[in-house]
Design a protein around this nucleic acid. Structure first.
Lengths: 350, 350
DNA sequence: CCGTACCTCCTAAACGATTAGGCTAAACGG
DNA sequence: CCGTTTAGCCTAATCGTTTAGGAGGTACGG
């Protein structure tokens, strides 16, 4: 097609003004059945499809929501996205994912560039899986773009909503279970605090260790399996270090690294070293041995986050229509902590 | 912020016309250093960010590319997306994923709606992971939107580019390996032909069975682990059916189902039943037993697809600037088949 | 037959950017 | 000193929609 048909073309062909055509296509009233018919006929004939950029410019509304992630190779993102997309579909919105980790590594520059980019496209709203820089949160606030955090927390004092699993309670439960087995020394292999759930998880594990008199080592690695592998190997190689009786793996990549390292060293799970991991996933029961894992329902978290965001956006549109300020109003109950189950399999020693 | 700053505001504050401001912000020449400085100062002061909808409307260009998938729970999509995003970033484009499976099940209606949606937003280009309906491919062609298929084929006679692994050759290799072990009867558990790699894979496996005199059963299931589980269980329960000596699992969900079903029935892998699966992934070596799998480098496939698409879009823009037709011109060499490795572990009996 | 109300439709002004075409003043050559 | 070039800037049209503010016409009651 050389020239794409526009509203004006439909108007010409149907013999009606662009006003009428627009009204007819948007099912607004004030258009006779006969005219509506004519418009639809002309539309079909020309294969006309409205230009969203023009609509959004004129209506001052956007249809897409951004999901900010860092290095999506953690499988739980899939479920999260599923929940988000399913929910957004209901209100005819689209999710676009923006990964702010370049080659697997997070950089503030990329975060800044991404935020600028989102503002340029006047995103309807943002769901972020990690704590954003204070500065960027303010920027989004300046532009009245609603933000919801999932599996992460807003920067301090911003009061933005966040939806996480109850990490502290869950971690306590993990610790309690290890204590039941009587393991005296634990190693917590964990990702950086950039992913802010790390804090609550660590707090819970520390508390549990104190409570049950276990000795605890916390080992931090970059948030990918290869780095975790290197970190754990180096730790175990350190002179005077012996393998811990139990390892708690902070997330999916940490679990992968732990299993690999133990396998390489001929350490048997759970006889030599027990493992409990965070974030259950489909393959956990099929691993050798089947893994005991904390099961966060991330699809549900995705749904909650998308619902909250959708409501915020809708309220914003209402406010704007009524001439009130478009600044999003967050309520305390927008923040939620959902509980998680400990799925007991065999890697813990059960 | 009550009212968002526009170009006009920057113009007012800087005392220069919108023309000059626009030129300055786009680093075009014809602007003195002094003016440029004034413009940048005003821009910073106001926190001005250009409105992409307006730019795209005026310039008639789009910055986002759509990736069409169906039920992304197949893990290999993650790598594919990684490759695509990494490549698109180079030309400042964004990927948006559009899933045309509603609750895990594909519906033509959703496909149609999605395509309409993409045309409405005048997507710069499309990467599709499954064969689209003829009709929709024509629609995209009408609107001069370039399309590239990955891990799938275009509808017949459309000549659109596709990038896949060399499924037939790979399947032959799988069969040859099973034959080396001397397994007499094989079961191929496979997803529907909507994902068109199914055809080449089946062709290859059938050919291999014929070549090596093995008996072959092909069992089709919907493309998710739960359905595959039900299908395989029902098959094995059928009176007179005995478990095959080897199972070839057509993709990731099929592998999951196979391992689960065999586990439930107390059949040992590989002693009772051997398994080879398609689409290697990070957890395969840690499963019980470590899985022998075909390794398709899907990140690389993603890179190739995105490169091809980017080139098509760039050529289209050039053509348009020079007043030529914006119809994308596909070259035969845009279609590629990349080879895959068979990663031998233990589930095949080795 | 007139006034009023109600439909239906139209004209024209936005939305926020880009850009063709033209103007001005400074610089330069002769 | 004058004509020509050029850098720097401006005015105004344009992209494809939506929508405020009327304008005509029909129907109806009085």
């Amino acid at each position: 097609m050389a020239k794409k048909p526009t509203l004006r073309d439909v108007s010409r062909l149907s013999g009606l003004s662009v006003y009428t055509v627009s009204k007819a296509l948007n099912n607004a009233d004030g258009v006779s059945a006969r005219s509506r018919e004519l418009v639809l006929k002309a539309t079909r004939e020309l294969g006309y499809v409205p230009n969203r950029a023009a609509q959004e410019l004129r209506r001052n509304t956007r249809s897409s929501v951004a999901v900010i992630t860092a290095s999506t190779s953690n499988y739980y993102y899939i479920d999260l996205m599923k929940g988000i997309e399913r929910t957004l579909r209901l209100s005819d919105r689209t999710a676009v994912v923006a990964d702010i980790a370049a080659e697997g590594v997070y950089t503030p520059d990329l975060e800044d560039a991404t935020i600028r980019n989102l503002i340029q496209s006047r995103t309807a709203g943002v769901i972020s899986t990690l704590t954003l820089r204070q500065e960027n949160v303010e920027l989004l606030a300046d532009w009245d773009i609603p933000v919801v955090f999932v599996d992460s927390h807003p920067p301090e004092n911003t009061g933005l909503p966040s939806i996480t699993m109850d990490n502290a309670a869950a971690s306590l439960r993990v610790g309690a279970h290890l204590a039941e087995h009587g393991y005296p020394d634990w190693l917590f292999l964990v990702y950086p605090a950039l992913w802010s759930t790390r804090l609550a998880r660590e707090r819970g594990i520390r508390e549990a260790a104190r409570l049950h008199g276990a000795e605890l080592t916390v080992l931090e690695s970059r948030n990918d399996a290869a780095s975790a592998h290197a970190t754990l190997s180096a730790h175990l190689d350190r002179p005077g270090t012996t393998a811990p009786r139990a390892i708690i793996a902070g997330n999916n990549p940490m679990v992968h690294a732990t299993l690999t390292v133990l396998g390489e060293r001929g350490l048997r799970v759970p006889d030599d070293v027990a493992i409990i991991g965070f974030d259950d996933f489909a393959w956990a029961p099929l691993l050798d041995p089947p893994l005991t894992m904390l099961d966060e329902d991330s699809e549900h978290i995705g749904v909650l986050a998308a619902q909250t965001l959708a409501r915020l956006i809708d309220e914003q549109l209402d406010a704007e229509r009524q001439g009130r300020s478009p600044t999003p109003v967050y309520r305390p109950e927008d923040s939620r902590e959902v509980s998680a189950d400990l799925v007991i399999r065999r890697s813990c020693g059960c």
